[in-house]
Design a binder for these strands. Sequence first.
RNA 1: GACCCCAUCGUCCAGGGGCCUAGGACUCCAGAUUUUCAUUCUGGCAACACGGGUUCGAAUCCCGUUGGGGUCGCCA
Length: 430
Amino acid sequence: MAETGKIVVRFAPSPTGYLHLGSARTALFNWLYARREGGKFLLRIEDTDKERSKDEFLKEILEDLKWLGMDFDGELLFQSKRLSVYKEYATRLLDKKLAYKEGEAIIFKVEKSRVIKINDAIHGEIAFNTDEIKDQVLIKSDGFPAYNFACAVDDHDMGITLVIRGDDHISNTPKQILFYEALGFKAPNFAHMPLMMAKDGSKLSKRHGGVSIAEYKKEGYLPGALANYLLLLGWSPGKNREIINLEETKKIFKIEDLGNVQVQFDIDKLKWINGEYIRQKSAKELAALIKNAKRIDAGADENYLERVVDLYKTRFRTLDEFANLTRCFFGDGFPTDAEAEKKREKYLKDEKTKKALTEFTAALKKLENFSSESIEKACRKVAEEYNVKPATVIHPARVAISGKTVGAGLFEMMELLGKKRVVERLGKVL
RNA sequence: GACCCCAUCGUCCAGGGGCCUAGGACUCCAGAUUUUCAUUCUGGCAACACGGGUUCGAAUCCCGUUGGGGUCGCCA
């Protein structure tokens, strides 16, 4: 199967769960390495756990990889379809007396007091004494191969030249090397990447919020931004650069540049990067994304949606944030924040302010050209008449029309909402 | 516990013997702009884990300690 002289790497998920942030990062570095070296990026499905493997997980994993921007070469390889291959190799070891049977299972006999050395591309030399390694199951009683055996056999058969995987596999490596030796195969090279932990240094888990790529997709993170962030964990483009896309990265990525230090996932930085990517996109592109993801209920007019996006472009870092921020533009059922309501009431307790706002509302009603410019003119005029700062009118007005104390410029918001809705909403609080 | 990996601001990354009174980014704080928020701009807080060596000189090399992490399944 293997072409000589060519770089071949693989990503080998087991379809027993969704694609995890950590696995996605591993996949990304594999993909980058393959693309940079002009090699192949293969996908192998490790579905030897009959109970836990599910089609829906596989489907989602494939979808998420694609979403993040990775493509793979060749056919998918399913371990569950290669049972006879593993059995044959195991039988070979049985014949050579390197393994023995225990019931239906086939067990590999580990020779004691040997030193197995790995030359890891990230960690350098790592040595193990085989005294630390127990005899290894090759074929389980159910006829399925054990993980390490299937992994070694497949990496060989697929012609893998470099295995890039997490540090949690370091201790599996000497076992696999033993299998390569016994089978008479040349072992691939290895690169073990330090693991990703939660922000507090503990294991990345559900309690720390999202761990699956699907969740970030759902919350409205952009794939390029997520990939960019993951890239920065253990790698750097240099020159103090932070924002870099996959296209550019695949031209400069080198496996030697991978860090050997454990990293922590920081949602704040991800959000910042996502915000950067959002600001790079046009309102049109963002509107399309928002529409596709059904982020807003109303079947809003495209042009209108684009204008809302434009107004809020610097104010949201995820599509979810956009949806929460702009509910008042897509129907009258928007909620009013408790704090905002308090502020509005406080403003309107002042008689002068209330009168000014009433007058402002009346002026708006009479406006023929409901543009932000003329709205602003009207606002300033009223403020002057009542001898109050424009802000005194503006703040309660914003709460009235949007339910929030924060948002875009009031006059632009009003123009976009249109006279009818604005006057109605102001009337309700006066 | 045994074996293995790791150690620069809270986090990510740069720095790999003199260029380091350690640089950038996120976060946080302050200021400017502004109708709020955000954006943008300016400034600030904040780190070489500790102890021994080696060396004229160590964040950088070596050893140890401590700390964190991983693995010890007929899970993958």
